[in-house]
Simulated assay, not measured.
Amino acid sequence: MDQLPETPPAAEMISPPLFERLGRRGFVGSVGGAAGYTLAAGPVMAQTIVTTPTDGLVAGDVSIPAGDRALPGYRARPATGRDWPVVLVCQEIFGLHEYIKDVCRRLAREGYLAVAPDYYVRQGDAAAAPDVGAAAAIAGRKPDDELFRDLDATLAWAGQDGGSAEKVAIIGFCRGGRNVWAYSAQNPRLKAGVAWYGPVAGQASALTPRVPLDMAADIKCPILGLYGEADTGIPVDSLRQMETRMREAGKRFTLVIYPGAPHGFHADYRPSYRKDAAEAGWRLMLEFLKGNGVS
C-alpha cells in the first residue's frame, strides 16, 4: 500500500493538491460497498463528539410519504433560498440517531438539503435495538426493492421541500455505504455517490439479490469510496476486486484508504472514531460532490 498503483483512463483521480495534502499512503486505486455490514466497530458511546448548531438552518424530524406508510426522517437545509442540492443520507444499522442527524446538519451548513429516511421502520426500531446483533437482524430484513422505493419517495419529498431535482447525491455509512452502491446502480438521476466503509462482498439473498461486486456494470454515477486500512470486515483484496470490475465496466471511481483507520472511523459516537481520517474524508467528500455538479 506504499505505492500508488497505475490508474487506467476510466478511473477518476484526486486532484494533485488534495492528494498531496492527504499523503500518498492514504490512497489505493480501488472501490467498494456490499450486502452486509461490519459488527466490529465498537459499542455506542454516550454522545457524539461533533455537535452542529441549527442557527441559520431549518432542521428537524419529518414524515415522508412512502407507499404503504410514512417514513420517519430527519431533514436539515438552509433557512433561506431554494433549489438546494439534495443529499440522501443512508444510516448505519443503528437507526436514525443523533450522529446521522448531525451529519445532515453538517451538510446543511454547506448549502445542501440533507435528508435521512428511517427506511428500516417496517422491520423494527433499530435505534432501540438492545445490542448490535438485534440491530443487524433488523437491517438484514430490508429488501432491496423496498429500499429503492423508499429512497425514490425520499427524493420526491425533498423536491417538494425545495430541493433541486437535478443536483442529487447519496452518501452512506457501513450498511448505508452498501446501500449507496445499490442505489447508484438503480437511479440514473444521481450525480454522485459516497460510500463510507460499505462492504463490497458477501452473500446475496432473496432480499438482497446482488452484492456491489455484481453491480459494477450498472453503476450510474461517479463513486467515492472512503475506507480504513485496519477494517477487519472489509478486506483490501475485495476492494481491489471491485476496482477491477469498475475499470472493466468503464466506470468513474475514486477510492481512498486511510492508513490504520478501522471500520466506522467517521462515527464520532463510537471508539472506532479517528478524527484525522474522519475530517480528511469529509473534506474530500465535499470536494467530490462539488466536482460532480452537486453544489
Rank of each mutant, 00 (worst) to 15 (best):
S30Y: 13
Y112N: 01
V132L: 09
I49Q: 15
L113D: 08
G33Q: 11
P85H: 08
D144Q: 08
D118C: 04
K101A: 00
G133A: 06
K142E: 15
T38E: 12
V44G: 06
A114C: 11
F148R: 13
L113E: 10
D144A: 06
A35E: 12
V132Y: 06
D152A: 05
P143I: 01
R75Y: 02
G95P: 07
V115S: 05
V115E: 05
A66K: 02
D131S: 02
A153Y: 11
V31W: 14
A153R: 01
F19Y: 14
D61A: 15
A127H: 09
R109D: 07
L57T: 08
R82L: 10
V87S: 01
L18A: 13
I49G: 11
A153E: 01
G140K: 06
L18D: 11
A126C: 12
R149E: 14
G42Q: 03
V132W: 02
G42M: 02
I138T: 06
P9Y: 09
G23Y: 04
D83I: 07
T154G: 05
A108S: 08
I14W: 12
L18Q: 08
R82D: 15
L57F: 06
D150F: 05
W84T: 12
P85V: 07
A153F: 11
G95K: 02
A79M: 06
A127S: 15
A35I: 13
C90P: 06
V50G: 05
R21A: 14
A128Y: 02
A70V: 12
Y74I: 00
P65G: 03
A46I: 13
P43A: 00
V87P: 03
P53Q: 02
G140L: 06
L71R: 04
G26L: 10
V28H: 13
E12S: 15
G36R: 10
T51C: 10
P72G: 05
G26K: 05
V50Q: 09
P85Q: 07
P117Q: 06
V87R: 01
A46Y: 07
E146L: 15
R25H: 12
M13A: 14
V132N: 09
L107D: 03
G133K: 03
V44E: 12
A66C: 03
D125S: 06
Q123H: 04
Q47E: 15
V121Q: 08
P130A: 02
R149Y: 09
E92P: 08
V103H: 00
V58D: 13
A129G: 02
R75P: 09
P72H: 04
R105T: 04
R106A: 13
D83F: 09
R24N: 11
D152R: 06
M45T: 12
E146P: 09
K142V: 15
F27W: 15
E146G: 09
F148V: 12
G67A: 02
A59W: 10
V50D: 10
V50N: 11
D144G: 05
K101D: 00
T54D: 14
V89G: 04
P72C: 03
C90S: 15
A11F: 14
Q123R: 09
A128D: 01
A139T: 07
E146Q: 13
P65C: 04
G95L: 00
I100K: 02
L88N: 04
D150E: 05
P130D: 01
